[in-house]
């Protein structure tokens, strides 16, 4: 795929599309690839769970345990019920972001469609959790603390809630797409030598972006789990 009008030197799945005569978009292929990797890893870990963790299980226990501690410290014990979807979001987005650093691959999150899909999922999920926890009383979340101002606050809160998926989408898209463009530009200027130092910066930036998506999901879920002010 051309990132910002620049031709990408080589994309594996373009070749596969050619070979199979298919026309599946690149970001969909790479999303599937990341999903396949994650499924394989999780099945491999589940296959030989042990009381004394070793190898891969050790790694996943550290990652998921750390995330769970973070969620419970922020939301409280109720956070454990909604924790799985947040852990999946973090690991999945991290995987997709880091795909962009593999030579010949393109990050699926550098396409706005992938991000919009995930942001809409988060939006629907936290509203569903809010409705499930509070029932019809969930509307109080949109009314603000002052009764006289509640019609105005209803409009304001609706706009600000609808803005959430938009800001989630655009931040992730802008960051990852920008990084991909910088990588390709540097690669055309000075192959390998120019791109290598940027890898260290971008690994950090991509982890931060995945973490921010995860953290915002957590903040939204916290808002829909707790009582209206």
């Amino acid at each position: 795929m051309a990132a910002g009008g620049l031709p990408h030197p080589l994309i594996y799945f373009n070749e596969l599309n050619h070979a199979l005569g298919l026309n599946v978009p690149i970001h969909v292929w790479y999303t599937w690839a990341v999903m396949a990797i994650l499924f394989t890893l999780s099945l491999a870990v589940r296959g030989k769970l042990a009381m004394v963790p070793a190898g891969l299980q050790n790694f996943f226990e550290v990652v998921i345990g750390g995330l769970e501690d973070f969620v419970v410290a922020n939301i409280g014990e109720k956070g454990r019920t909604v924790f799985p979807i947040m852990a999946v979001i973090f690991i999945f987005i991290l995987g997709m972001n880091l795909t962009g650093l593999v030579p010949g691959c393109d990050a699926p999150t550098a396409n706005v469609n992938t991000n919009a899909a995930m942001a809409v999922c988060v939006f629907l999920y936290y509203n569903y959790i809010g409705l499930k926890t509070h029932g019809a009383g969930y509307i109080h979340h949109f009314m603000g603390p002052v009764k006289a101002l509640s019609p105005l606050m209803l409009v304001l809160e609706t706009v600000s809630h609808l803005a959430r998926p938009l800001s989630l989408t655009l931040r992730l898209f802008g960051n990852i797409r920008g990084e991909e463009i910088v990588l390709i530009l540097l690669f055309t200027l000075a192959p390998v030598v120019g791109t290598l130092p940027m890898y260290f910066l971008f690994i950090l930036a991509k982890v931060i972006q995945a973490f921010i998506f995860f953290m915002l999901t957590m903040i939204y879920l916290k808002g829909s789990l707790e009582h209206a002010h």
């Binding site: 973070f70 706009v159 803005a163 938009l166 800001s167 655009l170 950090l204 931060i208 921010i212 915002l216």
Partner: peptide, 30 residues
Amino acid sequence: FKEKAAWDMIGTASTMGMHMVSGTLVGLTM
């Protein structure tokens, strides 16, 4: 980055600018 509070702060800080723009955009589109 070894401190959890730092991660939290980076998240919130990078959210603020985006929030301001996206609210306006959604209002405009609606």
